[in-house]
Design a binder for these strands. Structure first.
Length: 207
DNA sequence: CCCTGATTCGC
DNA sequence: GCGAATCAGG
């Protein structure tokens, strides 16, 4: 019941996909966000839905000559029309990003500095101060597959900094899973740390 | 190294 | 229709 694993691309998922893609989230972010699908699956679906090519660098497009095997047949294709989609999308989503900014600002003050070894400082237990006795359970999509666990030495910039264990004990580790780009935590731990907001997508970079 | 989307093609 | 593999670029 509810969100069957074998059920790919239900109406809800497609809807969420459209929203997140329209919001500018990357395919991998969307994939980890909705869970159960790879980023390739997301990209594939996006293209099948016909909403690809948003915010793309026209620098070198993608003149695909021959990927690996020669088609040998049917070199024809290229419809010619593929722009009207943009206007439609933009007109459909104009949600404010203001509040999400505020949320990000208040939450971006954990305490753990990657440059300093203030390990014993404290865990997120003092920063975002989350951890309710029980999760809202509305998180069935969040997959918690690999628990890497790494030491401070193995911690890379792109790894989840969620502390595991007693910071003062030698067995102390960090989560180490792939952190969501722009966040210090993986999708799972980010969902725990930043509870107050459901829609916690953050902007990539506005230049 | 990490990432991004685009495309092809077997299933 | 789906998505892994692959490609091409940042």
């Amino acid at each position: 019941m509810m969100s069957d694993p074998g059920n790919t691309w239900t109406d809800e998922r497609v809807e969420l996909l459209r929203k997140l893609w329209g919001d500018g989230l990357s395919a991998s972010q969307i994939a980890t966000e909705i869970g159960g699908v790879s980023r390739n699956a997301v990209i594939g679906k996006v293209h099948r839905l016909g909403l690809s090519g948003r915010a793309k660098a026209p620098a070198s497009a993608t003149p695909r000559p021959a990927a690996r095997k020669a088609p040998a047949t049917a070199p024809v294709a290229a419809p010619s029309v593929r722009a009207p989609v943009a206007a439609q999308e933009e007109a459909e989503q104009h949600q404010d990003d203001t509040f999400s900014n505020a949320v990000l600002a208040s939450a971006s003050a954990p305490a753990i500095e990657p440059e300093d070894d203030i390990i014993a400082d404290t865990a997120p237990s003092v920063a975002p101060r989350p951890l309710p006795p029980q999760a809202p359970a509305a998180r069935e999509s969040v997959v918690v597959p690999i628990s890497e666990r790494v030491t401070i030495m193995d911690l890379r910039e792109y790894m989840c900094r969620w502390p595991v264990g007693d910071p003062t004990s030698p067995g102390f580790r960090f989560c180490g899973a792939r952190a969501v780009t722009g966040l210090p935590y993986c999708a799972h731990h980010a969902s725990i740390a930043y509870q107050p907001v459901i829609d916690r997508r953050r902007d990539r970079k506005r230049a």
